[in-house]
Design a protein around this nucleic acid. Structure first.
Lengths: 220, 220
DNA sequence: TAGATTGTTAATCGATTAACAATC
DNA sequence: TAGATTGTTAATCGATTAACAATC
């Protein structure tokens, strides 16, 4: 029964991966980037864990979901593990990203250094303010939202960032999906509906402050 | 032994509340705000849950951590429940907030509507660019970072938002803590260390995109 | 070899769901 | 009363931790 167990090749999704694990994968990647900058060639689950407030067992278990990346007695080689995590997260490639809604936040995100650093390139922005359309912000062209479908298709944009007011978010989501994007990052404080097969992540910055507020009020 | 069980008054922290529960509390609050805007006076755990992709049991269980807010046969009265959640989150009051680091993101957050809507008032901003100091952005005064301690104390600022580059984040965190803030919202992509008793929430926007990327690449 | 550290199994812990008596 | 919906208990499910043989 256990004749030809396929050990080395973990093909995409045999077991479904908990969201928390994927999130920590990003944390590991970020920490590895720091470690490399500090001149480390290898690291260990203990180091990685203690820097992030996790147990060493947790780190090893998380990575074990995806394969065997460590070396007993040695630890993990930083560049190697970084490569593996990027491959798993899908950031071993460049993603073309569109931003819709050029209020304060949308405009800021067009120039957000952290996106470029991790392989996300904002290549188009959309708004309906005639004063902005046709201009470039942070070197990125601003288009009228009516041209979204064409521009998104032509530029092979696969991820969309929604920074419009809450009441416009669903409409914009529908537009982006119709234009063929695969995933949406939604900053509007509403739950948007999307077809199955499309991915979605929601970020509500006020919620983060609320979590902080709770913590402050209820700490012992 | 079970004589004088204290049933009605759930005093702060008997059992420690899972983070996930507190996060959903914010989601409930947001959804209740929408429901009220749509003209609903009451709602149910089923409605609330299905709008957020949760089971009704989950909603009731989450709320039960904090008390009995519902009415059997009727459901939850929206304004009542909103009030309770705000009280639990600590957003039944106004918080004075400072932002440190006026790059793209910091500047944008100074005018972020969502913060004000939930009771967070950005009352001071700090940078070290002489071109910005003394000016007002979105009506908020910009100070030199050297004056942080005085300004933060005088304005009774209890929450700090860090939007400086990664390498400056720890220094800024130390400054804010020394000035007497109780909580930090950190947008720099590093783990910052803070004394016990101080609260911290970290947001790395690139991580959110990485989670999206993973989802897109690994969906079935 | 001795020391370090992995990947993985078993034991623990915690969170979620299902079910239902109690209540309006 | 009948229908709706709560708060809560018990059962299930999943994630975390501890421990350790295997390996460099």
């Amino acid at each position: 029964m256990s004749q030809a167990e396929d050990k080395s090749t973990k093909s995409p999704i045999e077991v479904s991966i908990p969201k928390a694990v994927v999130h920590r994968l990003s944390l590991y990647l970020r920490e590895l980037q720091h470690l490399v900058r500090e001149g480390n060639e290898t690291t260990s689950s203990t180091t990685l864990g203690s820097r992030l407030g996790l147990t060493d067992a947790r780190v090893r278990k998380d990575l074990a979901y995806f394969g065997q990346f460590g070396h007993p007695g040695i630890g993990y080689r930083c560049p190697e593990l970084m490569g593996e995590i990027k491959r798993i997260l899908g950031t071993d490639r460049q993603w073309q990203v569109a931003i819709v809604g050029l209020g304060n936040l949308g405009t800021a995100l067009m120039g957000h250094r952290g996106f470029a650093d991790q392989g996300f390139r904002v290549v188009a922005a959309f708004d309906c303010d005639p004063g902005k359309i046709g201009s470039k912000i942070h070197g990125i062209p601003v288009y009228h939202i009516d041209t979204l479908e064409t521009v998104v298709r032509d530029a092979r944009i696969k991820l969309g960032i929604i920074t419009v007011p809450a009441k416009a978010a669903q409409t914009v989501a529908d537009l982006l999906v119709a234009a063929g994007v695969d995933g949406l990052l939604n900053f509007a404080p509403v739950t948007i509906s999307i077809p199955t097969g499309i991915s979605k992540v929601g970020v509500d910055l006020a919620i983060e402050l609320e979590q902080l507020s709770f913590d402050v009020v209820n700490r012992s």
